[in-house]
Write a protein that binds this DNA or RNA. Structure first.
Lengths: 191, 191, 191, 191
DNA sequence: GATGAATGAGTTTTCATTCAT
DNA sequence: GATGAATGAAAACTCATTCAT
């Protein structure tokens, strides 16, 4: 459990952990390495976190909140559907592409056995505005009347896939590609 | 002549490993458990595989080949585009949904640092028929003239996403849902 | 226990073992490696030898006998002391220098915990003619009346030391050096 | 500041290792036994040493330095040749005989494949004063004008041989024997 | 006799966590 | 709070020996 101390140290630990997980995966993550990478002593990690599992869970939440805050930035649910849809789609895509590795971390981690149920459901709640927006679109007959989960899968799946390609260097997703991707997304779900 | 290296034993090891990875993830995988699950001695694993890493790499290839063989079953590239598109899309989706955990394994593993570059590129080659099909569709002006990678991301992304939801129990993908999903997919990329 | 079979195979095993011990030491000696080096199956080793220990013991005896036979070649205890002393000293030195690694093996092995007491005393008996010769020299007042063991140490020690230097490439022992060494040896013990 | 790396612990490990090697040889040396004998945890060994091999190398150096320091004790190269020769010869012999097993260890180990080239050459340098002394003796025509290596082999060989006999219980080297041995040594190399 | 895959006890080594300083 | 040496349970891996073929 984090006590009151040094916020910089905490951030250093998060960032060190993230870097190492991206490089070596979860199973390759060693507390000793985290400490070295964050320039603290091993013991220090146990001042800020209960154990390794807690560290990973807290890291997930920290990163998820950061990411969600980024793509929800400036979002106003009272605006019209189409405007909000565009805004949210682009912000989600751009934020994801801007730090593809962090996105990869969030995706990969979601399925890891490290994840506590509590953290998982906390993360799930953050998607609520997207559910709400699609419900509105269906109500206004702008969007196909298909199950919301199906529509969300249809919208997020391609973005996740593109982010992966981008991260792997398999396919560079520039702004014009993003415009095409949005066209595909909208053609897909529009009524 | 002594006993020959036993193909059944090899399969038993693959299946045991897969079962354990699906249950406990990579980081929980212990060679001792694999041996026990496969009913062989620990040492035997090291006759068939160099080390734990090699085991995981070979397992990936084995499963990938099995999966690809399953969804390519009966595929005939000389058939017309639309017929082949439907067939491939549905087979891919159905095979993935039929064993969602194995699909998740393949996806997750693709990004894991365990994977050797060699195995990765071998796996990549298996997607070639899909690339070819989309190229054909673009040539015949049935499909939007967008980069093939973008189209593939648009097609596979939602399937992967749905498989995840299905595996997590978040959203059950029944046959009628699959039909809707196909409609979304086709609306998305059609010209 | 060696059965009646293939003498060539037996020799191949001895030589393979010797090569490996010289390269990697006793503790690095693995039965699998011996088998590979001798181009036989692991199981075959256990047809010719009871176990690893037995292999090493038999190898020692084989090599010791070969070496002793070589430097005792043509020795005739009825000849006069001085002639026999020269002959034996030079043959011992030359045989040792001719295969310094085998000599190193014999020396090194003598102290190893692998050695059975039986093999050790068998080897010890082979030095008897040297003891006898020195006793004769003392009787004839040609040699200092010091304990025989002391004299033997004085005679063999420098040869062993030189063989080591020679084997290590630290000091090349040519024929003229050998003549000087003999002079030192004789000046040392003569009355 | 946490506990500092503990010099006493290091010594305890060296001594424990030495005790075990002397008892059971290299091949019988197990890290678990070393830990137990030194009253530390297994893991602790790996704080002080990279691995088993490193432990043995460091042990060699530690013991070699200790031994050399012992027989060089009080040595003053500015004293006359004969006085220094006697002093060094007796100190070398007495130190070697005082702990014949450790001497045997050093000799045996020098030829073992465990030894890194670096450690070997470090050890070699420690003999320099002996080389210098013999060079002086030759210059003053007190010693035969033979190659220094040959003279050294002639001097050290018998001591090593005697130490072995002594250690094996084959021949007890008391003070009067040592006097005789010195006489042999000097008769051997004197001009 | 010959083979080499299979065995599993026995090693080495790792690494999360603790705790003396 | 911070440190990092120490711990020791747990894991990966080895290798002498067996035995089915």
């Amino acid at each position: 459990m984090a006590r009151e101390k040094d916020i910089d140290k905490l951030l250093a630990i998060y960032q060190a952990t993230l870097r190492l997980v991206l490089k070596q995966g979860f199973s390759g993550l060693r507390m000793g390495d985290v400490a070295k990478e964050a320039s603290v002593a091993t013991g220090t990690l146990y001042i800020y976190f209960q154990d390794k599992n807690d560290l990973i869970n807290q890291l997930y939440l920290w990163l998820k909140n950061k990411t969600v805050a980024a793509y929800m930035d400036g979002y106003d649910s009272s605006q019209p559907f189409m405007s909000n849809f565009r805004k949210l789609w682009f912000q989600y895509a751009q934020v994801s592409l801007a730090s593809p590795q962090e996105s990869a971390f969030l995706e990969q981690y979601y399925r890891s056995p490290f994840l506590s149920e509590e953290v998982r459901s906390t993360a799930e709640h953050l998607l609520q505005p997207i559910y709400d927006l699609l419900a509105l679109g269906k109500n206004e007959h702008l969007v196909k009347d298909f199950p919301t989960e199906l529509l969300i899968a249809q919208l997020m799946g391609p973005i996740h896939e593109l982010v992966r390609y981008h991260a792997e260097g398999k396919f560079c997703v520039a702004q014009n590609i993003l415009e095409q991707a949005f066209r595909l997304a909208w053609d897909s779900i529009k009524n």
